[in-house]
């Protein structure tokens, strides 16, 4: 029996706590099972993503990039990404834009140069939003199976899924180790630069025990994998076929590709007509 407590409003520091980051990461990874993009075959999504991750680098037309951006922004919205991820993205972009502005002003390029450089920002925006849209919509299992079917080694695709499975446990453990340091250490006086340095130092050194613990727990995992026939399966192509038999490209997937292709053609056509 769980009772929610609507009264509690987390403070700012609570929001960026390790625990909170864990929840956000899990939501990003597993939380969205029913978004628009999640309905499609992972291989189709990966091909789709590959297009939007690579082509922007070769496009210098702002109209086309904007066209891409609009479509992708909508898809990103439908995949309900976590605020934390968007926040990290926003910080990255704003600092990027700000530094370009400063550099161009310092070297006398003025706003014109900044405008020219904004093409790069646009490209980055398209690529990052595409990544967010695809990876929040695709849970690690489907991603891992998609990679396997595209010919990635079994160890690699297993690693992707296993990494996500371990993530919550590792974050929890990291949090506890951090508290082990804090519960036995001595912190400098509050709200000073030294406090900041102390916190930073702790957050780094807490990784060492975590790595050692992980190394130790891996022993059981590796033994268990051996028992569960993981290495046995790698030499048996039949297993791969059996495992991936649920992945099927359907009409729906093809329709999605067709609509995307049509949209891209329209955007390119508009790009050749208009100039920004």
């Amino acid at each position: 029996m769980e009772i929610t407590n609507p009264v509690h409003k987390p403070g700012f520091w609570e929001k960026i706590s390790v625990e909170r980051i864990k929840v956000e990461l899990l939501r990003t990874a597993y939380g969205q099972s029913m978004t628009f993009l999640s309905r499609f075959d992972p291989r189709i999504l990966m091909a789709w993503y590959a297009f939007f991750a690579i082509t922007p680098w070769f496009i210098h037309n702002k109209v086309i990039l904007l066209g891409f951006l609009i479509a992708i922004a909508i898809l990103t919205y439908t995949s309900k990404p976590s605020l934390l991820v968007l926040l990290v993205l926003a910080i990255g972009l704003i600092s990027d834009a700000a530094y370009m502005l400063v550099v161009s002003l310092m070297f006398g390029g003025g706003l014109a140069a900044a405008w020219a450089l904004s093409t790069l920002t646009l490209k980055l925006l398209v690529i990052t939003l595409a990544s967010i849209a695809v990876f929040t919509s695709m849970d690690p299992e489907r991603l891992s199976d998609g990679l396997l079917s595209l010919g990635m080694p079994a160890q690699f695709s297993f690693g992707v899924a296993y990494g996500f499975r371990m993530l919550p446990i590792l974050i929890e453990e990291y949090n506890n180790i951090l508290y082990s340091y804090r519960l036995r250490g001595k912190s400098p006086q509050k709200k000073s630069l030294r406090m900041l340095i102390y916190s930073f130092k702790l957050s780094v050194i807490a990784f060492y025990p975590l790595i050692l613990n992980t190394a130790k727990r891996t022993r059981t995992t590796v033994e268990a994998l051996e028992i569960k026939g993981f290495t046995y399966a790698m030499h048996d192509p039949k297993v791969k076929k059996l495992k991936l038999s649920y992945l099927k490209i359907t009409l729906k997937d093809l329709a999605f590709l067709a609509v995307s292709a049509f949209y891209i053609t329209v955007v390119f056509y508009l790009g050749s007509m208009l100039e920004l």
């Binding site: 690690p140 299992e141 499975r165 995992t221 569960k228």
Partner: peptide
């Protein structure tokens, strides 16, 4: 330490 023998997400 049975937790470490569970290798899949669900």
């Amino acid at each position: 330490d049975f937790e470490n023998q569970l290798v899949r997400p669900t």
